[in-house]
Design a protein around this nucleic acid. Structure first.
Length: 1026
RNA sequence: GGGUGCUUAGCUCAGUGGUAGAGCGUCGCCCUUACAAGGCGGAAGUCGGGGGUUCAAAUCCCUCAGCACCCA
């Protein structure tokens, strides 16, 4: 005996995996037939931040199933593995780790040292992840493992590769084509990481917020009659006012207001449009005046209908400011504190005043230099500043007032009916607001005006839309397609620069603007005192984009014709420029943009980058475009859409032919898995407890198209039991010397049983192929489960037992067939359950190849199926199940062998009985079958096709039980017959329905009528007897 | 506010117009020499409500309700 009592996954799985690796079984092209088609999948690279979670497991299991399936079918298969450097996430994890270990902080150690530190983190994390992927059974070509930052300047030995080159090349190419540009835009600013982030990285959370109502006094002396009317144009309120009422959820941004806007149709404010009003904060002697303008943006029915416009700190306001030429005053610095740079408030406020009065215009950069934060608020946190401002306004009596019991005050509203409740208090609405948070930092995002790099998505989006519209790329399920179109049709410019240290540094170098090209001394040829903001890196420099530093130098040199020196950073640059000014320097400094690229910019190149692009490698030619991308629907925008856009714009080819989007993994209650909820299912724990194959089978069985994966540990148990079932089948085969025969060719059995199980196998093969072809992993798993357990184990094994005891010929034939069936079970299950199947494969005979490279069968099953054998076996199974059911319902003790009577048995059923009497008797526990012409009193009747059977119980029969049993069946049949008859009586059905359906309906009706008649007879007889 | 889904057995979910399914659970019987992580049998659903299209609707359309996710 080679097989143990049970399969020990913990020991066997690592051993089997090693054997595959030792045999180079995963290598690109392994097991490919000559001139075969290629099949390639790029792994969605996991982040080098931690360890694998269930989502990764799910994702990679599906890929592995497809890869193994194609490899067995002889495709030239590549599964490209690798990891992602995950800029912000990895930087965050590393810093957290450093803090835990009491290492010096990032800023303390400096950029170069920090980069090295992150590489260390990467190396550890990558090792963890890769070993976990291997534990899942992932059959990637590990010799080709890639990393999105391989070959970066900072990369230590052993981290060479082409990816960095590819990223830089793409940036430069896109820059040269005008697809990448630099600009001052309002971006989502993360004050914790002090970087811009893309809008996809912002999560909106509903929180309890407040809306303050303030009075903006009109410029001195101006008043108007504020009138409110109802729908019928009747005046319901009228008052003389010297202010305009403004509502805001962010009082601290009032300091940067550039205007107050009202809707052009809003008659209430028509008298004061064009007038100036005063921002009610800041030193009293220098309050700023801003214009009241009209714009379509304010909603007259919301709040007071008047909106303050703070272009530098609100996305909607920014648009209004741009179209009305309103200045955008930035109030905060990189860490979200109120600005403290530049000259005093009084000086800057004076400049701002002259702008709003139209006395001067400044450019964007000059406006950005204006700091309108009053001196006493400078350096404060934005939320501290808010409370100071609110307090000051209250004190001055410039808040809009209301009674203390006004319900819109929310929880602070008084609900008493006394005098106190009629007291006037400032109107501060309590209401839920959507607050933007950084998905990594979890701090409130600040809209901030900064210089950033953008991809001009609008120029590259149409090719990406067309690729999917024209079905060159197929997205599954269909809903993914809709989402894709919706997003791409409303796409915004993509901000790709990040103020981080971990990532691909942007290949742009900055230098001073040249005033004139002459032989004058250097200090006269360059603009030394450029405008710049050190904090937000708002460059006012000349710049060049180039693939290398050398090329950048050359680019500058060709226009300047001077000696050029690259300095470390902006600080060094400023110092050098000062030296230049004081004639202490002979070279002109330039420095590289310190920012790095958004991680998704580099992962957007994953398909071509991993294949060696920009080099024209043979892998690139062979495996690109890839066959399919398997990924979660949550990164459709982040990754999938961008890969499509970028690949099309760079190599003018689609990156993959199909996209299969799977659902997200949830806990058994459908909630997101999160550490804080404590509902995370760790795939490695599942593997420890149930084995990888159970995890894989469960995953596959639950991976229905469009559904989410709600994990319930009870499912793992169920499918673990399935692996045991398979193991026991193999043990049974071993026990009957099935392992010892060789069955390389198609068996040609003569026994019905063997023919039947071959039919079932062909059918299963067909169905599994169809299921996998259409990514219906759940169907594939369920079909195999039903076949192996419900057909092979429940019936084939049982029926084979007497054949194994018969003479040599039948025994040998059954051994041959069972070997063939076992092999097919192993082959068909292998993509889903690779370990246990490979293990049994190895134990169950001498094999030319490992199962991973076994040939996936390719029969055209229709020609092979023997319908006669199917009919015979179905009759038998039906008979046995009926007898079993009858026995239980008639309370016949399970152990007893009974006498069964047969009546009106036709030739066909007689023959089936004769051929299979031994096994039927055994499985139905029948002592003898006796032919009778009439059933004696006390016989329970069982109608069957071509016969009537009876279980004689004599006095033992429970008439009531028997009557219940028969009537129940009778009732059900009557109902079905009625419905079928009704259908067949409809002329419309007969004319409209397809012939096949009509025929089937006739057959169904005939079958039921025959059965109904027999039951009816039995019921009549029962009544006579009782 | 906009978009996308979901609602089927006690639970978790399949089911793309033709006789309602699976796993788990549950109830009863059984240690029948591959398997008690098992065998055999049973109970359990007006397919969220309403309307429509069709010979035929869980399935297609409309509508209402509840839930989830994504984007403002």
């Amino acid at each position: 005996m080679r097989m143990n009592k049970t399969f020990d996954a913990k020991i066997a799985e690592p051993r089997v995996y090693q054997a595959w690796e030792a045999a180079n079984a995963f290598k690109a092209g392994a097991n490919a037939k000559p001139n075969s088609e290629t099949y390639s999948i790029m792994i969605p690279p996991p982040n080098v931040t931690g360890s694998l979670h269930m989502g990764h497991a799910f994702n990679n299991i599906l890929q592995d199933i497809l890869i193994r399936w194609h490899r067995m079918r002889g495709f030239d298969t590549l599964w490209q593995p690798g990891t992602d450097h995950a800029g912000i996430a990895t930087q965050m994890v590393t810093e957290r780790e450093m803090a835990k270990n009491k290492e010096p902080s990032r800023t303390a150690m400096g950029r170069k040292a920090f980069e090295q530190r992150v590489w260390q983190q990467k190396i550890t994390s990558r090792a963890t992840i890769i070993s976990q992927l291997k534990r899942l059974g992932a059959s990637c070509d590990w010799s080709r493992e890639a990393f999105t930052m391989s070959g970066a300047q900072s990369a230590p030995t052993g981290e060479e590769g082409n990816f960095h080159d590819a990223v830089i090349k793409v940036f430069v190419e896109m820059y040269n084509k005008g697809l990448v540009y630099r600009g001052k835009r309002l971006v989502n600013w993360d004050p914790h990481f002090e970087t811009a982030i893309s809008d996809l990285e912002v999560v909106s959370v509903e929180t309890c917020g407040y809306m303050w109502h303030f009075k903006y006094p009109l410029q001195s002396g101006v008043t108007y009659t504020y009138v409110e009317k109802d729908e019928n144009n009747h005046v319901i309120f009228s008052e003389e006012r010297d202010y305009i009422s403004i509502a805001t959820t962010r009082p601290e941004t009032m300091l940067g207001d550039g205007a107050v806007a009202v809707h052009p149709c809003d008659e209430r404010y028509a008298p004061i449009v064009g007038k100036l009003c005063e921002i009610p904060v800041g030193p009293k002697e220098a309050r700023r005046l801003i214009p009241i303008i009209t714009d379509d943006y304010p909603d007259p029915n919301f709040g007071s209908g008047a909106v303050k416009i703070t272009g530098a700190h609100d996305f909607n306001d920014y648009v209004v400011a741009k179209r009305n030429d309103i200045p955008c005053y930035r109030l905060m610095n990189a860490s979200g504190k109120m600005r403290s740079d530049g000259a005093s408030y009084l000086q800057h406020a004076k400049v701002a005043m002259s702008i709003s009065q139209g006395q001067q215009t400044l450019n964007e950069a000059e406006i950005d230099n204006i700091n309108l934060v009053p001196d006493n608020l400078r350096g404060l946190d934005r939320f501290e500043a808010r409370s100071c401002i609110v307090e000051q306004i209250f004190k001055e009596g410039l808040a809009v007032m209301t009674t203390a019991d006004n319900p819109i005050l929310g929880t602070t509203a008084l609900c008493t009916n006394d005098e106190k409740s009629k007291k006037l208090v400032p109107l501060v609405e309590e209401k839920p607001i959507m607050q933007p948070y950084g998905d990594r930092s979890n701090v409130i995002i600040e809209p901030m005006l900064t210089d950033q790099w953008f991809v001009d998505t609008s120029s590259i989006v149409s090719a990406a839309l067309n690729a999917v519209k024209s079905d060159k790329i197929e997205i599954l399920p269909d809903s993914g397609k809709k989402t894709y179109f919706h997003w791409l049709e409303n796409i915004e410019p993509w901000c790709i620069s990040r103020q981080l240290w971990w990532g691909h540094q942007i290949p742009v170098w900055y230098g001073p603007h040249m005033i004139e090209n002459s032989s004058k001394p250097l200090q006269d040829r360059f603009n030394i005192a450029a405008h710049y903001s050190h904090e937000l890196k708002t460059y006012k420099y000349d710049y060049r984009c180039a693939e290398t530093e050398q090329e950048a130098i050359q680019a500058f040199h060709s226009i300047w014709n001077t000696e050029i020196e690259v300095v470390d950073d902006e600080t060094a640059f400023i110092k050098a420029m000062n030296e230049l000014k004081s004639c202490n320097r002979t070279s002109v400094p330039i420095f590289r943009d310190p920012d790095v690229l958004d991680t998704w910019f580099s992962s957007g190149l994953w398909p071509i980058g991993t294949l060696g692009w920009p080099n024209k490698t043979k892998e690139f030619k062979r495996y690109f475009p890839t066959s399919v991308l398997i990924t979660g629907q949550d990164i459709l925008f982040f990754w999938v859409a961008r890969m499509i856009m970028m690949q099309l714009s760079i190599v003018n080819q689609i990156p993959f032919k199909k996209v299969y989007l799977h659902g997200l993994v949830r806990d058994e209650n459908g909630r997101k898995m999160s550490k804080s909820l404590g509902n995370v299912v760790d795939p490695l724990e599942v593997i420890e407890e149930f084995g990888t194959d159970s995890l894989r089978f469960t995953t596959s069985a639950m991976a229905s198209l469009g559904g989410m994966l709600k994990l319930d540990r009870r499912r793992f148990i169920g499918y673990r039991n399935f692996t045991t079932k398979l193991w026991n089948f193999a043990k049974f085969a071993e026990l009957n010397a099935v392992f010892d025969v060789t069955a390389n060719t198609l068996p040609q059995p003569s026994h019905t049983l063997n023919k039947w199980i071959m039919n079932q196998t062909f059918k299963t093969l067909d169905e599994v192929n169809a299921a996998l072809e259409t990514f219906r992993f759940n169907d594939a798993a369920n079909i195999l489960y039903a076949f192996v357990w419900g057909k092979v184990c429940d019936w084939y094994v049982e029926f084979s037992k007497p054949l194994f005891q018969q003479q040599e010929k039948a025994k040998l034939e059954t051994q041959m067939t069972m070997k063939w069936v076992l092999d097919h079970c192993l082959i068909l299950l292998h993509p889903i359950m690779p370990f246990i199947t490979e293990e049994i494969w190895g134990l169950s005979g001498k094999r030319k190849k490992m199962l991973i490279h076994a040939e996936w069968p390719d029969y055209s099953s229709r020609d092979l199926i023997d319908t006669k054998a199917d009919h015979e076996m179905n009759w038998i199974i039906d008979f046995i199940e009926s007898i079993r059911s009858l026995r239980v319902q008639m309370s016949v003790p399970a152990g007893i062998y009974v006498l069964i009577l047969a009546r009106k048995m036709n030739k066909r059923s007689q023959k089936i009985w004769d051929n299979n009497a031994t096994i039927i008797k055994r499985l139905a526990r029948i002592k003898e079958l006796v032919q009778v012409t009439k059933f004696p009193k006390g016989t329970a009747i069982l109608p069957a096709e071509g016969a009537e059977f009876g279980l004689p119980l004599a006095e033992l029969i429970d008439f009531n039980a028997e009557e219940t049993r028969l009537s129940k069946a009778h009732k059900k049949l009557q109902k079905e017959i009625k419905s079928l008859k009704h259908r067949l009586s409809q002329q419309k059905f007969l004319t409209n329905a397809p012939e096949e359906v009509i025929n089937q309906t006739h057959v169904n009706l005939a079958e039921r009528e025959e059965k109904e008649k027999k039951i009816n007879d039995a019921l009549t007889r029962l009544k006579e007897m009782s």
